[in-house]
Computed example of a mutant assay.
Amino acid sequence: MGVRDLGSKLNEKIFTEIGGMEQGMVLQSADTDNPVLLFLHGGPGSPEIAFSQDCPTGLDGLFTVCWWEQRGSGISYRRNIPKESMTLEQMIEDALAVTKYLCKRFGKEKVYLMGHSWGSLLGVLTVKRAPELFYAYMGIGQVARQEESERLAYTYMLERFCQAGDKRMVRKLRRYPIDKGGDMSLRYLSVRSEGMQKLGIGVMHRMTSMMDCVKVVLGYKGYTLGEKLRFVMGSSFSLGCLWDTVAKCDLFERAPRLEVPTYVFQGKYDYQVSYEIAKRYMEAMQAPVKGFYTFAESAHSPCYEEPEKMCEILQKDVLQGKAELADR
């Protein structure tokens, strides 16, 4: 049973200039006096507000939530975006600009930051750049060392499909020998996603096909038809521009410490971003307060798969600056 949709006092889709171009976001809140939360979506290029329509997170009951759609993604996609502007550095600058916009609009000194998947990589580096702007950081499906994560996932999938006698998936995977240093191309990602969904180790544990994700976007009432088309184009564009950066970035080296309370929510079945590596990163990194939380019924998206547990952690730990519910 999901979190009950309480309805939002604020539910507004806006466009504003961020980093020299118009970018879009949706603001939602049951009470605008609540703290502000900036949500950094995954992908790169995959805004997530559409998932909250059928799988409400409960975030807008605790925070004023900004579902920002990043440069080159969703409603922020434009055909004329220069590819050279699609860099990790520019994304960090954009995230800081959105943060400052939110502080000014809602009269806050700081905001909370939550990043999912690719957004968790962006989130850690954004907080590292300007910790004074954030009360705390929360990572969902925390990226830390994605090349290693992809090899672990590949080996696991190949073993499972061999055991199951699924010759078709074995044949498709073996075209891309990731375990032997093969190229993690965008074509491979398509095969990888298909395999993960079949095994329940991808986007959601109970989601069996990537078509389920497509249906979520197509069914979202907050997008116009044109915006749904932009979503598809932006997803391909952003992934093509940023995937190599995601794969090669090592947070063990780049962000061994954060200066704000840091929390990671990781699904037990997550192989899209390795549960094992995320846990190792949290054990190694330093922060004033830190907590790692295992979601036993989730794969890559515990915010949609187990929202009640997430909200309990947010209320009892994150908003209190504690980590008493964390794994021991």
Rank of each mutant, 00 (worst) to 15 (best):
F134N: 06
S193G: 15
R4T: 14
V260K: 04
G2C: 15
G43R: 02
K13R: 13
Q146R: 01
G115Q: 01
G7D: 00
A95S: 10
G19H: 07
V98N: 05
P256Q: 04
M21Q: 12
V214P: 13
E312R: 15
G141T: 00
A326T: 08
T224N: 02
M282L: 10
Q315P: 05
V318I: 11
F295G: 05
D54M: 14
I178Q: 06
Y269M: 13
L189N: 13
D5Q: 10
L152Y: 10
M196A: 12
Q272C: 15
L37C: 04
R4L: 13
A296L: 15
W67E: 02
C103Q: 12
Q146N: 07
S85D: 11
M138Y: 02
K228H: 03
L37A: 02
S298T: 07
M184S: 09
V127D: 07
S8E: 12
A255N: 04
F39Y: 12
I14H: 05
G165Q: 02
K128S: 13
G240T: 08
E305H: 05
G141H: 01
E132W: 01
Y188L: 02
E12H: 09
Y156E: 10
A136Y: 02
A164N: 02
L62N: 06
A50P: 06
I313F: 02
Q28E: 13
R105D: 05
L27K: 00
G7M: 03
F231D: 06
K215A: 11
